[in-house]
Design a protein around this nucleic acid. Structure first.
Ligand SMILES: [Mn+2]
Ligand SMILES: [Mn+2]
Ligand SMILES: [Zn+2]
Ligand SMILES: [Zn+2]
Lengths: 138, 138
DNA sequence: ATCCTACAATGGACATTGTCTAAGTCAAGG
DNA sequence: CCTTGACTTAGACAATGTCCATTGTAGGAT
């Protein structure tokens, strides 16, 4: 049973078959699916689920802080259930594989006060790009 | 006259009114416009310029390395003429203002070998998010 | 167990962003 | 000037995302 689903249940969510399958699809490590990929996998488990419901459910999970949106791809947003451990992403420029990574130190401290222009900074998003071992071999 | 335009001229580009206008629109500091914003400003100078030409011209400038695409926004790509000085971005979460910033040190060195999973990393994109001084005052 | 009703799901229209193509136009070399 | 291949154009198409009116249902109340 999905850990994510447990957390959502604890927030007074009405539990529907649709929300259950979306949560199931998002379960696991290094999961960074687009909304359409989530929909495709959800349909395999619950054929009548609609695109609108997938978008709604993902949006609600994001609002609740249980899922994060990542923009590693310049096309569709990706949805990441690893919302409770801060991390960054490593993306293969060839095949699109995405891995969670944990840089040493806080990336925020790399930005000196003189480069903050009076902003109150609350968040930093880092995307490393390169070529993964299997693409390099081929 | 645009510095960007001078560099493009030196590459044997056929100089057309459309390309001139797109280059003029992108001239300046802290410029990070979407393709449609570029089109709107270009139309003000050259009413018959088409959307397709703006997309084509931006794509060519990116291929030549004279403009970079940035994904600070999770919707449209933004086009940045500051392609020759490596930098990162600071974005206001309220009004969307974008500033160029220069973090101390190389963000690549923050990622230890043990977190590289055999990838050959060539690039890193960092987006700092927060609230700008004018939005904080309001 | 059944009923109620507020909340959720659905399908489809619509919006935004981006790509592609066929046909017309023009910058620049000869 | 001509010519020609590169450039531009309008609009169709594709991908991603949002919105809304209608229908369905989870879960508390009776
Ligand atoms: Mn992740
Ligand atoms: Mn910039
Ligand atoms: Zn790869
Ligand atoms: Zn602001």
């Amino acid at each position: 049973m999905s850990d994510l689903l447990e957390r959502l249940r604890g927030r007074g969510w009405r539990m529907t078959a649709q929300r259950r399958v979306v949560a199931e699809v998002l379960d696991g490590d290094h999961v960074h699916l687009t909304a359409d990929e989530v929909h495709a996998r959800a349909v395999a488990k619950l054929p009548e689920i609609s695109r609108a419901t997938v978008y709604n459910t993902l949006g609600e999970m994001v609002s609740l802080g249980e899922v994060i949106e990542v923009a590693t791809d310049k096309r569709a947003k990706r949805y990441d259930p690893n919302a409770h451990r801060p991390h960054q992403h490593l993306v293969c420029a060839r095949c699109g594989a995405i891995r969670d990574v944990h840089p040493s130190g806080n990336p925020l401290t790399d930005l000196p006060d003189s480069e903050r222009f009076g902003f109150t900074i609350s968040d930093v998003e880092v995307t490393y790009r390169g070529v993964c071992p299997s693409c390099a071999a081929a």
